[in-house]
Design a protein around this nucleic acid. Structure first.
Lengths: 194, 194, 194, 194
DNA sequence: GACTAACCGAGACGGTACGTCGTGTCTTAGT
DNA sequence: ACTAAGACACGACGTACCGTCTCGGTTAGTC
């Protein structure tokens, strides 16, 4: 029998407070000034930390910000776990409203991340796997349940619908337009029309 | 009394061939390496031109590329001028197919432009006015005609549909997925389902 | 017939005041703090100039300092042009006294340069060619004239004597000892003893 | 009454093999790459030892190397203990030949040490006391004996001669020229000429 | 035979300097 | 007036060492 022993770390362990300070500084500065405008030097000195320390933990600025955003939104985006009698339509609208509200706050950060992903293959991949796909699957899953319950027709394609929904959000966001609960309502209306 | 109708230019006029060479170099290099990876210095020296010459004609790298892309796509995106008996559905699908085919070639440039727009207010505005809105209106107009002809219901919202359509395209493009004629067909199917 | 036209410079010419300021700052800082302790950044900012400007003109800090020292000492080390009835012995003693007085002032800089030369082949070569050899030849020439005049014997080797003389100076200098006119006198005494 | 004769060490004593490994690695790396090019990190990892271990035993890289060189050359430079009938002239020539041969091997290390001494007061002092002065005194002593024996005149200054001799060696060494037995012979010839 | 102080490997961390790159502006001289 | 070439200030980049500091684990010699 073979138990996997977790690799025992040697040497001085990284100071978790330092990591936290860096993440916090990165998110704050990025929200204030945008991803591009913030330099690694800025983040490090805002966190009161040597620049090298940042390089010790993340490969790039994008890497750091990405991880920081993940941690923050991990909780926020908790699946509605839609039990009960509530209709999928209502659930979707509430989910979109929540997401859109979040975008109202962190939209600039997201825009910056999407922009950064366009210039960096590896970043793109990680962003997609850890951020985009999970959200896509939430919507796809919800729509599939709606199909099972007969709220939308058998002939509809949940994945295409999910692309349309997220695409609409991105399109508005990236064009500097508002995304709010009214927009969420309109989208749901269109998707669920008989 | 003497009014100056148009400022008569004195001195040596700008060499139009130079502008063309710069645009050509900019587009080529950007297609090969992406917007961010190409520096103004690169473009200028690829065109065999001094950097200042570039600054004399465009404010920024983004400005140059934007103008260059406009000129190239001006012809491509010529309005279908939808006369005749052809259904709007068919027209829309053909239009989307055309656009998508173009995206397959210049998608990287477009992605770069969209990314650049996220970090530059003025660029965003110009990109939106001269590139995005015209395309949006083409689709909106087409859908409105479809509504008049009864191809889609009175209760549908052409602008929302246009956002959904363009959004889907952007979403796929920015996530590094293919956009092809099959995708165009699926979208049209969804939009025109009764 | 082929006349060598001197390469006509194009573009904005380097600002000579900038070069002068950099050289001056470099020499001053090096005299105050020593070669190693002075960073390129220090020199550039002391001269009120961008760091890149320094890199545009000299390959390394050593390169800059070397050139600066050359220019300064070019005049100082003007050959005695030993005309007249004065004995070579007197001429040599005066020459050494002059050099030693100079060392009293710039000895630290010279020590730094010699040190730097030990870690950099190319620097060593240039230092040797442009600084050391000329001085060596002055002494060798003087001794050769002394030989012709019968002030020293035919069997003596001017080059060996020059090595002994300069070596003594270096040895004292590099060991932090004083080199003064008394030392010059003692050396000459030893060299010219019958 | 209890006087502490020597502080009795408690706890685990330093591993002597570790010190030896560090010294060996330091000398080897320095001979291969020169003093400046070798970092403390390099030495420590070449010896398979943590950096801190090095700092526990020596204050600086120079300190380590200096000590290591001392130990190695302590034996080499064993005084000729000039007994017997051999003339001082022969003894000096043999001594210089030995030293010069050693320089042929470890000259680069010595050059590096001399260079390092120019930038570090304390290092200079230690280098001088423990390395240079002993060698100087060997030569001075030898010359004084030569004077007593009448091999050189009463009016000569042994210390000046020693400075000339060592200076010549340094001068050649620091200028990247060879120092060999022929050079030793020439020097002795000059010193002992009547 | 257990205790305990020092040793030791490994790596975190704040610094400082490095050399390179790109941007936007400027200064020349030549067209 | 435009162009080619290049100077220049500025600011960010990623890397390399330095010297110090924390960890966890290991001895060697006393109690």
């Amino acid at each position: 029998m073979c138990r996997v022993e977790k690799a025992k770390p040697v040497g001085r362990p990284p100071n978790t407070a330092t990591s936290a300070a860096l993440k916090e500084a990165a998110l704050r500065l990025m929200r204030e000034n945008g991803f591009r405008k913030v330099s690694i030097t800025d983040i490090a000195s805002a966190a009161g930390v040597a620049r090298q320390t940042l390089y010790n933990r993340w490969k790039t600025k994008a890497d750091l910000v990405l991880k920081a955003v993940f941690e923050e939104t991990a909780l926020v985006a908790a699946e509605p776990d839609a039990a009960g009698e509530e209709s999928c339509r209502v659930q979707l609208e509430r989910f979109l409203s929540n997401v859109f509200r979040h975008v109202e706050r962190d939209g600039d950060a997201m825009r910056s991340l999407i922009a950064a992903a366009q210039e960096d293959e590896a970043f793109q991949e990680e962003f997609r796997t850890r951020f985009i796909l999970p959200r896509e699957e939430m919507v796809t899953g919800l729509l599939r349940r709606a199909q099972e319950r007969g709220e939308i027709g058998r002939n509809r394609d949940p994945e295409l619908l999910s692309t349309l929904i997220h695409g609409a959000m991105w399109y508005r966001m990236l064009n500097g337009q508002v995304v709010g609960s009214a927009f969420a309502h309109d989208i749901v209306e269109e998707v669920f029309r008989s």
